[in-house]
Structure formats: structure tokens, C-alpha cells
């Protein structure tokens, strides 16, 4: 018998380990940027790059949360409604003159609570994630309508205004918040026990169970993370809009899943990155921005996003 010798995989092994779906999004993003840059001079202007980054910040935060859930083989259909609920709670608490700090905390707490409910019902109740989060999708947007009485609540606060207007260089504070979320998420996924356990549960629930991984805790944790991040996204949303609206925000749900799929994360779980969904979100934001610059009617944008997502999903067939 030969003992183990090779300490590091050869470059060939590494190449094989880099599957098509995971490199597709960065390649597509580069192509898209080059193409739009060539077609329209303003696309690569500083102002427009700032606009694209600003537009993608909320989606990045939501997509990171979605990525955690999808990494375990689940899905969180409630992210956008949870964000709406968080925004509305923020708005209502702000309206009581409690101060912006409390308002933000309350908004994030409300969204996290929805995540906790999702997690407990999915993991302990053993009910399909699809159904559970479809239920909370409806419940959270209903709650948002009730709490807001169907009306938008203006939130004109200096702190929130600076979040989406000020920043460092071309990066507004919103963009920096999104970047920090992504970096922390990457560390959690690849440098902590929870991260390995998330990938293990997604890869093989049975194997995770028999090696003593607490499946239930891991499942609750990912929905909790997704809820909390929807809360952070809610803060960014209110900052951007200047008001807390009980709007449905469905496109955020679709785009969060789309960004994760574009990022090469397996919908079956077990294979995930954070960089992938972040690039996916940037790709979607660039696509919409570029089409707008080129004067393509807004009506075509969802169509374009849909085509890109289906193409990305098609690529995942070459996985393995």
C-alpha cells in the first residue's frame, strides 16, 4: 500500500475543482461590463459605477442570506416580505419619536423574528421549506400592511440619508455595509464550525446526522441569518427610498434567488460560496442599469433577467 504523499493538489486537480457554474458569473459580469462599456460611454463613468453599486447593495445583503438557506438545500421565499415588514416596523417606531437607533433595532428584530419562525417550523415541524416560507411571505406582507395601515411612512432622518448619500470614495455607506455583510458571511461559511455544518447538512443530511451535527440547530440558524439580513436590507431600503412602504417588493425575492443561482450555488445544497451570489447580484444590477442606459424599455428588463437566470440554471447541469 502506498502511503499518502501528495500534500497539495496539482493545478490540474484545482482546475477540475473549479466548476463551470462557479466561474460563469464572474466571466459573464466581465463580458457584460465590457459590452455595455463599449456601447455606452457613460456606463463606466464614476457616477454610473456608484449608481450600480448603490443599486446592488440591498440585493447583495438579501442574496447572502438566501445563499445560507440554499446552502442547506432549503429556500427562503419570504426574504422580500420580511424586509418589507422590517422596513414598516422601522418606520412606525421612528414615527413615535423613539429615535432612529431604536427604530433600526426594532426593524431588524422584527425581520429576525420572522427568520426564527421560519427556522423553527421548517426544522422542528419538519414541514417543507417551500410551503413554510410561502406562508411567511404572505403573513409578513400582511402584517406590514396592517401595521402601516397600508400607508407609506416618510423617514427623513439624517443618519439614514447619509447611509445612502455619503461614504468613502465611490462607495456609499450602504455599499460598505453590504460589503461588510459579505465578508463576515464568507468568514462564517468557510472559517467556522457552523459554516462546515451548513455545507454538511446541505450535502448529506444523513451523513451530518450520523456524525453528530445538529441538523435542527443548523437549519434554524440559516433561516435566522436570512431573517436578520433581511432586516439589515430593510434599513438600507428605507435609507434609499426615504420612506417605509408596505410595498410587496417581489422583484427582490426573485432577484435574490437569481443572484444565488447565477453565483453557482447548488439549489440542492452542499455547494455554496458567498462571492458567487455577490457577483450574481452585481451582474443583475449591471444588466438592469446597462439596459436602462441603452434606452431599452423598462418592460424588457424582467424578461432579460429571466433569460439570464435560466441560462445560469442551465449551466448548473454541467456541475459534477
Amino acid at each position: 500500500m502506498t502511503a499518502l504523499t501528495a500534500a497539495r493538489p496539482s493545478w490540474r486537480d484545482r482546475l477540475v475543482d473549479l466548476p463551470l457554474p462557479e466561474i460563469a458569473a464572474p466571466v459573464a459580469l466581465v463580458l457584460l461590463v465590457v459590452a455595455f462599456g463599449a456601447l455606452d460611454g457613460t456606463f463606466l463613468s464614476r457616477g454610473n459605477i456608484e449608481a450600480v453599486l448603490q443599486a446592488s447593495a440591498i440585493l447583495v445583503v438579501l442574496a447572502v442570506g438566501q445563499a445560507f438557506v440554499i446552502a442547506t438545500g432549503g429556500i427562503d421565499l419570504s426574504v422580500a416580505s420580511t424586509m418589507t415588514l422590517g422596513a414598516v416596523v422601522l418606520g412606525q417606531v421612528y414615527a413615535t419619536d423613539a429615535g432612529i437607533g431604536w427604530a433600526i433595532l426594532a426593524g431588524i428584530a422584527a425581520a429576525t423574528a420572522v427568520g426564527l419562525v421560519n427556522g423553527l417550523v421548517v426544522a422542528k415541524g419538519g414541514i417543507t421549506d417551500f410551503i413554510v416560507t410561502l406562508g411567511t411571505l404572505s403573513a409578513a406582507s400582511g402584517l406590514a400592511l396592517i401595521i402601516a395601515n397600508g400607508k407609506p411612512q416618510p423617514v427623513l432622518d439624517g443618519f439614514l440619508l447619509r447611509l445612502s448619500a455619503d461614504g468613502v470614495g465611490p462607495f456609499t455607506w450602504s455599499v460598505i455595509v453590504a460589503a461588510v455583510v459579505a465578508v463576515v458571511a464568507h468568514v462564517v461559511l468557510f472559517r467556522t464550525r457552523l459554516g462546515v455544518h451548513i455545507l454538511a447538512v446541505g450535502g448529506s443530511t444523513e451523513a451530518a446526522r450520523s456524525t453528530g451535527v445538529h441538523n435542527v440547530r443548523v437549519k434554524v440558524a440559516v433561516y435566522l441569518i436570512s431573517g436578520a439580513l433581511a432586516g439589515i436590507a430593510a434599513v438600507l431600503l428605507v435609507a434609499r427610498v426615504g420612506a417605509a412602504e408596505p410595498a410587496s417588493n417581489t422583484s427582490f425575492l426573485l432577484n435574490s434567488v437569481a443572484a444565488v443561482v447565477l453565483g453557482g450555488v447548488s439549489l440542492f445544497g452542499g455547494r455554496a460560496t458567498i462571492a458567487g451570489p455577490v457577483v450574481g447580484a452585481l451582474l443583475l444590477a449591471s444588466l438592469v442599469n446597462g439596459l436602462t442606459l441603452l434606452g431599452v424599455s423598462q418592460f424588457y428588463q424582467p424578461l432579460a433577467v429571466g433569460i439570464v437566470v435560466v441560462l445560469a440554471a442551465f449551466l448548473t447541469r454541467f456541475q459534477r
Binding site: 455545507l199 454538511a200 450535502g203 448529506s204 451530518a208 451535527v213
Partner: peptide, 15 residues
Amino acid sequence: ALVDDLTVWQNLFLG
């Protein structure tokens, strides 16, 4: 009880 998408060392230390 191995997780295919994890590495050998990750599987050895799983849990």
C-alpha cells in the same frame, strides 16, 4: 456517512 462536496479532512473532522 461522507459528505461528497467536502474534502477528506473536513469529513474526517465532521462534527
